[in-house]
Design a protein around this nucleic acid. Sequence first.
DNA 1: TTGATGATAAACAGCATTGTTGATTGATGG
DNA 2: CCATCAATCAACAATGCTGTTTATCATCAA
Lengths: 234, 234
Amino acid sequence: MPDGTTIIPTRRPRRRQDPERTRAAILEAACALLAKDGPEGLSVSQVAQLAKVNRGTAYQHFQTREQLLEATTTWVSEKLRRAVFGEAPVNSDVATLGDAQGVALRMAEFAMENPALGRVWLFELLASSRPASDPFWNQFKTSLEKFARSDQAQPGIDVDVHAVMVLIGTLLWPVFVRADSRSAKDRRQLVERFSNEMLRLSLQGTMRPEKFPELDAHLRAARGDKARRASAAK
Amino acid sequence: MPDGTTIIPTRRPRRRQDPERTRAAILEAACALLAKDGPEGLSVSQVAQLAKVNRGTAYQHFQTREQLLEATTTWVSEKLRRAVFGEAPVNSDVATLGDAQGVALRMAEFAMENPALGRVWLFELLASSRPASDPFWNQFKTSLEKFARSDQAQPGIDVDVHAVMVLIGTLLWPVFVRADSRSAKDRRQLVERFSNEMLRLSLQGTMRPEKFPELDAHLRAARGDKARRASAAK
DNA sequence: TTGATGATAAACAGCATTGTTGATTGATGG
DNA sequence: CCATCAATCAACAATGCTGTTTATCATCAA
């Protein structure tokens, strides 16, 4: 970052009445209410009230309730993205995947600290018509693809299926265990339980392969199909 | 009031008195609307309209909108339970776990054929204060516990975490891929993809253990902790 | 100062919903 | 055959939200 550290707030020409700040306040309030009542329960009245802003003002920033909701969702997504991947801009190809383990852990921690918010965001993503336009989902899936292509990964991972499973598991486990209404200590332990089970699953799976020879065969056959389809598509 | 002969023929033939059937019709309608609009969007008016029943009638069967929603949820849960575990009553201890593979597959198929309904039910389960009171969740978790104790399973499975992951993965994958608005053929293929990835994960995990010796050590240490806690609790 | 922009306040029509009440109808037992 | 009672229905009042509009105030830029 450039010499921005020395800049005193007086240097920057203050905005007239700081619409930016107002907008941010509205979005923050919307976030909080979204986490409390879910997307359906979000009313412009309540948002304005919580943001200490007139209802008309909210309508000036976001023409319709639906647009406010959409803006709030991507706002949350950005928050999540920063928490997991750091402050780097979206398109920076470097450091996309420092370590898969770290990404998984930071995601689990974020989810555990914001269970309701994570839940709501996830369901908006699922309901969205174009998931690919979501900042976090994009970067997350890219990073998982990179891992799957690396030599550290088992061969044959179905990245789409796997990304969905990991994402929703991580985000909904805190919801299931009621992470809100838990002590910080409990939450730490619950994150650890989840991470360990995920790690165990990643390293060992759940079934002893030697006990399921026929399934193993089936699996290899399916992988053969996939490879054949891929080469046929060329 | 004068004799009814002059009354305009807009009178709807009154439903035959059969409370059971009426109740079922209301619940079925609620199911359909639940799948379409989600729990928040469920209005008694619409339910009554779809069930071809007066709104007041619905209020007689379910005192409040909230109760209707709750009843509908367990109705769905029962449906799911039957689809996955068969018609046997809940408490029958026999045949609880014919084969874990079959359970997983039937669940995936149900989810793929009823994506919206599965999503809503799952959401209600997550929001519920006592998941243990849900018919399907109960039986599902029991069956998974049984498997984890069997000699076919890898040791050290955290059943709670794992049950949540498998359940939500199976139910939300169809939502993610927009199983509605897909052809039957597509849906079949998508079920297969999911099942294969789940199977692959169960048999092999995602990471090559030989590449992560330190993680393997960490995992064994964690398992040691758990065992120590368990023996300390005695 | 002036003009433009952001923010506030209040009021309005339209709509959908909730929950309640009293009337009506059909089944059923005596 | 009728009296009773529960199931059903139509209508009502109350509420809250949406989106729009109008008038007014505050703050900064030029």
